[in-house]
Simulated assay, not measured.
Amino acid sequence: MRKTDHLGGITAFVATAQHGSFTAAAERLGLTKSAVAKSVGRLEARLGVELFLRSTRRLSLTPDGERFLASSQSAIEILEQAEAELTSHIAEPSGRLRIDLPAAFGRQRILPHLLRTLRQYPELSMTVTFSERFVDPIEEGVDLVVRIGELADSSGLIGRRLTTQKLVICASPDYLQRSGVPAETADMSHHQCIVGLRRNEPKIWLLKNSLGQVTRFTPPATHEFADGDAMLAAVLAGCGLSQLPLWLVGKYLAGGELVEVLSGHAGGEMPVSALWPKSRQLLPKIRFMVDTLVKAAEEGLLD
């Protein structure tokens, strides 16, 4: 058997272990489910061990599989690093870049820069997903992640601050006419509030007083939405108060469709950052895209 077949089997095995099924691995690798399963089967036959325990519902790694996965991931990282060093002189990005973005911010602020890049560099391909949950780039095979909020410590990732989101609390004139205008933060406990829904994360608003001190306020979660555009739609529909980024609601405030409340507590900010695995820090396509987003942020195009 050729050595390239060996490498193909290892790649199929790692993708299957990371994604939990032959189907998901096939989608990640651009192959058929049958091809991935056969490739892993040939690898097991060559090694003389079972790497997966197979059932009708799921795959799980055997002890041998867990040990081999750790070694295989290290080997793949070494190969990626070698490729990055070899191609670091290439000026134009190429290959497939996998990016995961927060939904509303990603569509409105990041996606236009990605599309402009695709038009400019035809050798570059992208797989773009949108989610609000935490995405582990290493485990899920994503090259670059953009996230809003403070970053959890992770020794396997590199982060770069792009910009900050300035936050305001607002509501529709119709809602305020029906429910009254809150004069202080304690009044919000008597209001309907629209909050973001993120798994295993507290629902808090950042309030900033005249002295510049920031406090964390837990609003009553009357309505929960896992998408910024949906939250905006609910506020415009008169469903309650919400704290939203100024880039999202600015034009509605200017047009009178929304009204800012508790302006004395405005000014809270949330960081927006790009994250990527340390093992891929030298890949030209990642470096190019991070530089593109940093430049856009410096020019105020992400605000």
Rank of each mutant, 00 (worst) to 15 (best):
L51M: 03
L43Q: 06
T56I: 11
G48T: 12
L51V: 05
R42I: 08
S55F: 06
V49D: 09
R42Y: 08
R54L: 06
L31I: 06
E27F: 11
V36T: 00
K38R: 14
T56G: 13
A45H: 10
V36P: 08
L29V: 07
V36W: 01
V40S: 03
S39M: 08
L43T: 06
S55V: 07
V36L: 02
K33E: 10
S34D: 01
S39C: 09
A35K: 08
K38C: 03
V49C: 09
L59H: 02
L43A: 07
A45S: 13
L53R: 14
L47F: 11
V40C: 09
R54V: 03
A37Y: 02
K33C: 07
V40P: 00
F52N: 04
S39R: 15
S39E: 06
L43I: 08
L59R: 02
R54D: 03
S39D: 07
F52V: 03
V36Y: 00
V40T: 01
G41H: 02
L47W: 08
L31E: 11
F52C: 00
G30V: 12
T56S: 15
S39G: 09
R57E: 08
R54F: 08
G48W: 02
R46N: 10
R57G: 04
L53D: 13
S55G: 07
T56M: 13
R54H: 14
V36E: 03
S34W: 00
V40W: 02
V40M: 07
K33I: 09
L31M: 15
L29Y: 05
E50Y: 05
F52T: 05
K33F: 11
E50A: 15
V49E: 15
R58A: 12
L31F: 14
G41N: 03
T56F: 14
T32G: 15
A35S: 14
L43C: 08
V40F: 07
K38D: 08
R46G: 05
V49L: 11
G48L: 13
K38W: 02
A45P: 00
R42F: 05
L43M: 09
R54S: 07
L47R: 10
R54G: 01
L47E: 06
E44L: 09
A45V: 04
T32K: 03
A37I: 00
R58V: 06
R57H: 13
L59T: 00
R46A: 13
L59S: 00
L51N: 04
R58S: 11
E44H: 05
A35M: 11
A45N: 10
L59W: 04
L53M: 12
G30K: 14
R42T: 11
L59K: 00
L59V: 01
L43D: 04
R46M: 11
F52A: 03
R46D: 12
E27I: 06
R57L: 11
L53H: 14
R58H: 10
F52D: 03
R28D: 03
L43K: 08
G41K: 02
E44W: 06
V40E: 00
G48V: 13
E50D: 13
L51T: 05
S34G: 02
L29A: 09
L47I: 00
T56D: 15
